[in-house]
Amino acid sequence: MGLEFLQLSLAPLLIGVLAAVACALPGNFLVLRRQALIGDAISHVVLPGIIAAFLLTGTVSAWPMMIGAAGAAVISVALIELVRRLGRVEPGAAMGLVFTTMFAGGVLLLEQSDTSGVHLDVEHALYGNLESLIWIDAEGWGSLLDTGALAGLPPQVARLAIVLAGLVAFLWLFWRPLAISTFDPGFAQSVGIRNGPLGFALVTATAVAAVAAFDAVGSIIVIAMFVCPPAAARLMTNRLGRQVAWSVGFAVVSAVLGYVLAGYGPLWLGAANSVSAAGMIATVSGLILAAACVLGPQRKRTGEAAA
C-alpha cells in the first residue's frame, strides 16, 4: 500500500487538492459578484490558446502553452466587452457568443493542424489526465525528504503550489477592498477603491488559476471548483471569512473523496477499471452543493425564514 500510494496516488491527489483550492478561492468572489460563469467562459477559451501556442512553438511544453492560454483568456474578456459595447448585446449572450466561437476556432485549428505526433486532443483538454501524473521516483516515505526524488514529482505540483501561493497573497493583500467592492461597489467607490482595476485583477487571478489548473486536471474540474464549493459555502454562513474557509474545506473534500471514489470505488463494486477522476471530483462537489442546498443553515435569502 505505502509505496504504491506514494508512486501512483500521492501526486494526483496533491494536484487535485491544489487545483481545487486554487479555483475555489477566487470562485468565492465570483459567486458573490454574480460572475460565476466567467470561469466557464475562460476554461472554454483556453483550448484555442494552447493550440495556437503549440502551432507557434511546435512543441508541447508547459510555459508557452500557459502563456497562450492566459493570452486567450485575456482576449476573450476583451472580446466580450467589445461585443457588449459595440453591439449593445446583453452580457450573457455576449459571453456565450464569444466563448463558443473561440472554442469552435480551437477545435478547427486542432483538426486542421498536424498534431498526430503529440498528445493533444479535445478530450484531454476537457477532462484532463489526473491519473497519469504519477511520481515514479518515489521509493518509500523517505523520498519525501529526498530532493533528488522530489525533483521527479510531476511539474504541475510545483506550478500549482506557486499559483496557489500567489492567489493567497493576492487575496490577503486586497481582502478589504475586494470585500467592500464585492458587497457594495457604490460605497467602495466613495471611499476611493477603484472597482474597475480591482475587478480586472480578480478576473486575471481567475484566469491564472484556470490556466494552471487546466493543464493538470482539465476544464471540468476547473468550472466545477470555481462554482460548487463557494456556492455550497455561501449556504453555510453569512461571514465572508468563514465562507472562504468552508469553500476551501469543501474543495479539499471533493478532490480527495472524488479521487478515491474514482480510483477505488469501481473496485469495491467489483468492476475492474477505474473511472475518470476529474469527472468524479466534479460529481462529489455537486453532491456537497446539493446537500448544502437542502441542509445549509443559511440557504435562504435574507428575510425568508429558514424552514
Partner: peptide
C-alpha cells in the same frame, strides 16, 4: 429555493452534470 443567483446555479449544474 436558495439564495444562490442564477449564474452560480448554471455553473454548478453545467459542471456537475458534465462531470458525471
Amino acid at each position: 429555493r436558495t439564495r444562490l443567483s442564477e449564474d452560480a446555479a448554471i455553473g454548478a449544474v453545467l459542471s456537475v452534470f458534465f462531470g458525471l
